[in-house]
Simulated scan of single mutants.
Amino acid sequence: MKLHQLRAIVAICESGSIQEASRLLHISQPALSKSIKELEADLGVQLLVRSNRGITATDFGERLVRRARLILEEVRRAREEIDTLKGVMDGKVSIGVSPVTPGAQFIDSLNRYRKRYPNVRVQIHELRPSKLMEGLREGLLDLVLTSLPASRNNDGFHWAELYAQPTVLAVRKGHPLRNARSLAELLGEEWLLQDSLEQSRIGCMFETYRLPPPQRVIECASVVLFSELALNTDAVSYWSRRILDHVSKLGQDLEILDLAEQVPPMNISLVCRDQELVTREAKALIDELVYAYRHPNAPQPNEVNSPGK
């Protein structure tokens, strides 16, 4: 199994075409086909099949492609690490966030990082929490900021809880239950969440107060569409206070419910891969973010310890 063979099968699976993969890799189609045939012969299984939908991976191929992406990403990171050791920080760092996780500290930290390491390429990907962890697991992301609770994810990553983000429940103006004072009054309502009930802290809220979870739930990861649904339906929506304040500034007001029960905050954590696998570019940003969130009023040092050290 060789690196050029892994690049070949990943490119073909991602593009769905040998022709397009050939163009992306800058090699001829016959050479690309030969690489795949040699890989299949080496492994003793069929990796790709042709159909009227193009080229798709077999079960063997899908499993190999998942591993191949991680291997190729590690090779890229190794090369960048060597280049960094030569004296220049000019690699790449990929950050994963969900709509609720960045804040003022994130922007300030990123600005300081960019001034300190202007040649580092920074990529920011906004994804749902489950997709964030998938990207981290596959090596596509160096670090993520997530609202998922660490206790539910025994995945071997390093978790550093940064802060608790206040949350509220809200309904549209004029909603029949805008004056509700207990969670029990809302049981029969439709709920609007940015994550699944299992991943959302709302699920924990119902468990805490020993109430059955909502039966009707709309999941919407788009902040814009989420806002429109909250404003134009009777759903009870769960908001981070930061996002709600931002939406309110645009003149899109909602009515916040004043319940006897406490609405659980979103505990925002920074999650990164094993310290031995984190590049120096990523480690420097991790240091910056952890320090900025945990010491918001302190002078910013050039370098602080990363989580777990």
Rank of each mutant, 00 (worst) to 15 (best):
A41F: 00
L85W: 14
P129Y: 00
R152K: 07
I27C: 07
I55S: 02
R273G: 15
S28Q: 01
E81V: 15
V290L: 01
A8G: 00
T279P: 02
R112K: 14
R242L: 12
V236T: 05
P30W: 14
I268T: 15
V120K: 12
L254S: 12
V290A: 06
K283L: 09
E281F: 02
S222E: 13
K283N: 05
S182D: 03
I256R: 03
S35F: 00
R121K: 15
E228Q: 12
S227N: 07
D155T: 04
Y291M: 08
L148N: 08
L177P: 01
L127C: 05
N305V: 11
Q275T: 14
T101Y: 08
N267F: 14
T233L: 05
S22N: 08
K86M: 13
P299C: 08
L136A: 03
E73F: 10
N153A: 09
T167W: 01
I12D: 02
Q5E: 03
P99R: 14
Q105M: 12
P301I: 09
C13T: 09
V49K: 01
M266W: 13
R69P: 03
L211P: 01
S306V: 06
D245K: 08
Q275A: 15
R181A: 09
Y209D: 04
G103R: 10
S147D: 06
V45R: 00
L32N: 01
R67L: 07
L47W: 01
G44Q: 05
D59A: 11
L225C: 09
N179V: 14
V122G: 03
K86N: 15
K131Y: 10
D195F: 01
M1A: 08
I286V: 07
P129W: 06
L211G: 02
E126Q: 10
E219S: 03
Q262N: 13
P118L: 07
H158R: 13
S151H: 11
S28K: 10
L140Q: 02
V263P: 03
V236K: 00
E62I: 12
K173D: 13
G174D: 03
L39W: 00
E126W: 00
L127Q: 04
K34E: 13
E288R: 07
Q105H: 10
L254A: 14
A184Q: 08
A221P: 10
K309P: 04
R77S: 11
G61R: 01
L192E: 01
V304F: 13
A68R: 03
K2T: 09
S200V: 11
C272I: 15
V88P: 04
V171S: 03
I71D: 14
R69K: 14
R23C: 04
A221W: 12
G174F: 05
Q194R: 11
A282Y: 06
C204T: 01
T279Y: 01
D108H: 14
L148A: 06
F206M: 03
V223E: 10
E207M: 00
R116G: 04
G54C: 02
A31H: 06
L277V: 14
C13W: 00
A68M: 15
L197D: 09
G87I: 11
S147M: 07
N179R: 12
L24N: 10
